[in-house]
Amino acid sequence: MNIFRLAGDMTHLFSVLVLLLKIHTIKSCAGISLKTQELYALVFTTRYLDIFTDFISLYNTVMKLIFLGSSFSIVWYIRRHKIVRRSYDKDQDTFRHYFLVIPCLVLAVFINHKFTFKEVMWTFSLYLEAVAILPQLVLLQRTRNIDNLTGQYVFLLGAYRALYILNWIYRHFTEPHYVHWITWIAGVVQTLLYADFFYYYFQSWKNNEKLQLPA
């Protein structure tokens, strides 16, 4: 494991912790897209089908369990928690799941390394993760006042993707047999989706202003 990969995983972990902490302590999910969170729960479920069959390392298994557990807890909080659910703005979070899920599924069936259930599901999870942030980005654009924690959450998620790209570049040079072109393309697409957000995030940071995305 190289430093970029570890930093990427840690940023991913922090993003989830920031979000859980926000929801748990403030008892509010204002500005958070349930659609995106449900898509992440689906991403982790379909990606980690091998969690009990293929052992890679303790680190790997523990992280998988954390991502599965946290994504389902977040969805539970927004849908079921009697206080948190009141802060969910359903009318603003209108992105349709199937606009993303169906094309990703079709793509995974046709473009994969091997046509087996587990492999297609794994590939589907990569495609879906690449676009799962879209409902959240749309919601951010509609929200006039983005609170700091929500901004940091999205920033950390974007940073995680950027660090993974550095990790792949590093691995490409240090591990000659490391070729994962589906992962790379999906990962680059995913990172590009954050470009616009990053631009406004840094602008607001530089000018010491509140983050606001143009409509």
């Binding site: 990969r5 091998d50 293929d54 890679i56 790997n60 998988k64 991502f67 390394h113 091997k114 990790n167």
Partner: peptide, 10 residues
Amino acid sequence: SNDDIEKDEL
């Protein structure tokens, strides 16, 4: 098998 790509990333 050798066909399987290693999935050591999260």
